[in-house]
Design a protein around this nucleic acid. Structure first.
Length: 266
DNA sequence: AATGGGACCTGCGCGC
DNA sequence: TGCGCGCAGGTCCCAT
C-alpha cells in the first residue's frame, strides 16, 4: 500500500503529533509484527524513551529515540498508524504521557517493527537506492542507460531508486507516455527527461494531497489521503483513458498488475 | 544479470 | 445464501 508519498505524509503527520513525546507504555497484541528484538525486550526497552526525530528512507519510517536507538516501522501492504488510537483491532499500541495512544494496525501482518541501535546498519537501508528527490535529472537519466530490465519493474526496484511502488510506477509511466513493457535502455533522452520530471511531479503532488487511499491506507488521523482523484490509470482496467478515451489495459508484470493506456504510452 | 515463482498473512469480491 | 477461488499496494529468498 503505502509508497513514498503515503509514508512521507505519515511522517509529517507524526512530526506534528508525537515528536518530543515520551512513550510510557507499549502493548503488543500481536508479537508477529515485532521483528527485533524479542517482543518482550522491545516493549520494555521503549518504555520511558522520548521521540527525538522522525525520518523516512524509501518506504521506511524511522523514529529516533532519546537513548540513540531507533524504532523503525515498515507498513508493507496493510499497515496503518493511527492517532489517537485505542482501537480494538490494533497490533501494537504506544501509550504517551498525557494518556493518548498511537496504534499500529495491520490486517495482513506483513508490517515490520524494529528497535535497533543504529538504523543505518539495517540491511533494508543498506540496500536502498537514492531518494528520487535527491537526484538531479542528469543523474536520473544516466541510471537507465545499461539496464535491460523492463522499465516498470525497474522503477519499483528499491535498490535502483527508493520509494516507488506499483501505483506510482503506473501513474508516472502514463504521464511520461512510456509503455511499461519497454526496456529501460531503449528510452530516448527525451523520454528519460519526461520520466524524471513526471517522477518528481507525481510524487510531490501526491505528498501535497496526503497520498492515495486505496484499501487500507489512511493518514495518522484515520482520514483518507486525497490523491486518488488524480490517478489516471491505476485500478482503471477497461475504463476510458482520460486523454484518448480508449480502454485502459491491465497486464501482469513481475507478478503484479500493470495498468496502462496502449494508445498513449509508446 | 535478469526473471519467475513462492512465501509471508487476512479479508474482500466475484462467479457458480 | 454460501462456498471456493483469485486477488491485493511490499519485500525476501530461492531457482533457473
Amino acid at each position: 500500500m503505502p509508497e513514498l508519498p503515503e509514508v512521507e505524509t505519515i511522517k509529517r503527520d507524526l512530526e506534528k503529533i508525537v515528536l518530543g513525546k515520551k512513550i510510557i507504555k507499549v502493548c503488543v497484541y500481536n508479537p508477529a509484527v515485532i521483528r527485533e528484538p524479542s517482543p518482550k525486550v522491545f516493549k520494555k526497552s521503549l518504555q520511558g524513551l522520548v521521540i527525538k526525530k522522525i525520518l523516512r528512507r524509501g518506504k521506511l519510517l524511522i523514529l529516533e529515540l532519546s537513548n540513540g536507538a531507533a524504532l523503525t516501522i515498515h507498513l508493507k501492504m496493510t499497515g496503518q498508524l493511527v492517532y489517537p488510537g485505542g482501537l480494538k483491532n490494533s497490533r501494537v499500541a504506544f501509550y504517551f504521557s498525557g494518556g493518548k495512544i498511537l496504534d499500529f494496525n495491520d490486517q495482513r501482518l506483513f508490517g515490520e517493527l524494529r528497535l535497533v541501535d543504529e538504523w543505518g546498519k539495517l540491511k533494508f537501508i543498506q540496500g536502498l537506492g537514492p531518494e528520487p528527490f535527491d537526484l538531479s535529472c542528469s543523474d536520473f537519466m544516466g541510471m537507465f542507460s545499461k539496464k535491460k530490465t523492463k522499465i516498470k519493474p525497474l522503477l519499483m526496484d528499491q535498490s535502483f531508486i527508493s520509494g516507488i511502488g506499483n501505483i506510482y510506477a503506473a501513474e508516472i509511466l502514463f504521464r511520461s507516455k512510456i509503455d511499461p513493457r519497454r526496456s529501460a535502455q531503449s528510452l530516448t533522452e527525451k523520454e528519460k527527461e519526461a520520466l524524471c520530471k513526471e517522477t518528481k511531479e507525481v510524487l510531490s503532488s501526491a505528498i501535497v494531497h496526503g497520498g492515495s487511499s486505496i484499501d487500507d491506507y489512511v493518514r495518522l488521523s484515520g482520514k483518507p489521503g486525497g490523491y486518488l482523484k488524480f490517478h489516471r490509470v491505476y485500478g482503471r482496467e477497461a475504463k476510458p483513458c482520460f486523454v484518448c478515451k480508449g480502454p485502459i489495459n491491465k497486464i501482469t508484470q513481475g507478478g503484479r498488475g500493470t495498468y496502462f493506456c496502449p494508445k498513449c504510452q509508446k
